[in-house]
Amino acid sequence: DETGKFLVLALYDYQEKSPREVTMKKGDILTLLNSTNKDWWKVEVNGRQGFVPAAYVKFL
């Protein structure tokens, strides 16, 4: 149950560059965990948590 969690859509592919980031593919649906930083949002994708560039995702 994803109640209270926001979902975001990956607009572009992103390859993680550090262990704190996660890789996503364009079209992936991600669970948004934290968006307090304007540049990097914490998400969960494929069972992994990490950061992606905020400009690469949008709210569903």
Rank of each mutant, 00 (worst) to 15 (best):
D1P: 14
D1V: 14
D1W: 08
D1Q: 15
T3A: 13
T3D: 14
T3G: 13
T3E: 13
T3M: 12
G4Q: 14
G4C: 13
G4Y: 10
K5N: 12
K5V: 11
K5Y: 13
K5E: 11
K5S: 11
K5H: 14
F6M: 15
F6Y: 12
F6C: 15
L7E: 08
L7G: 03
L7P: 05
V8W: 07
V8E: 01
V8H: 03
V8N: 01
L9Q: 11
L9N: 03
A10M: 02
A10R: 01
A10D: 00
A10Y: 03
A10F: 03
L11T: 05
Y12K: 10
Y12M: 12
D13M: 03
D13P: 06
Y14K: 01
Y14I: 01
Y14Q: 01
Q15E: 15
E16D: 04
E16L: 07
E16Q: 13
K17E: 08
K17A: 12
S18P: 04
S18M: 07
P19I: 09
P19A: 12
R20H: 15
R20C: 14
E21S: 06
E21G: 11
E21D: 06
V22P: 00
V22Q: 03
V22Y: 02
V22H: 03
V22G: 02
T23W: 04
T23H: 04
M24V: 11
M24W: 01
M24P: 00
M24H: 01
K25T: 09
K26P: 03
K26W: 03
K26V: 09
G27N: 07
G27H: 04
I29T: 07
I29H: 05
L30M: 15
L30P: 01
T31L: 15
T31H: 11
L32A: 04
L32N: 00
L32K: 01
L33A: 02
L33F: 04
L33M: 07
N34S: 13
N34I: 07
N34A: 09
N34C: 10
N34Y: 06
S35G: 10
S35W: 15
S35R: 10
T36G: 10
T36P: 04
T36I: 09
T36A: 12
N37W: 07
N37Y: 08
N37P: 04
K38F: 07
K38Q: 11
K38T: 09
K38E: 11
K38G: 10
K38L: 08
D39Q: 11
D39C: 12
W40R: 03
W40T: 02
K42T: 07
K42G: 06
K42W: 15
V43W: 00
V43A: 02
V43F: 01
E44N: 05
E44H: 05
E44Y: 06
E44D: 09
E44T: 07
V45N: 11
V45E: 03
V45Y: 10
V45Q: 10
N46S: 09
G47M: 05
G47F: 05
R48K: 13
R48H: 07
R48V: 08
R48W: 03
R48I: 09
R48N: 07
Q49R: 11
Q49F: 07
Q49G: 06
G50V: 03
G50H: 01
G50P: 00
F51R: 03
F51L: 08
F51H: 05
V52W: 01
V52S: 00
V52I: 09
P53C: 03
A54G: 04
A55Y: 10
A55P: 07
Y56I: 07
Y56P: 00
Y56M: 12
V57M: 06
V57W: 01
F59N: 08
F59R: 11
F59T: 09
L60D: 07
L60A: 07
L60E: 07
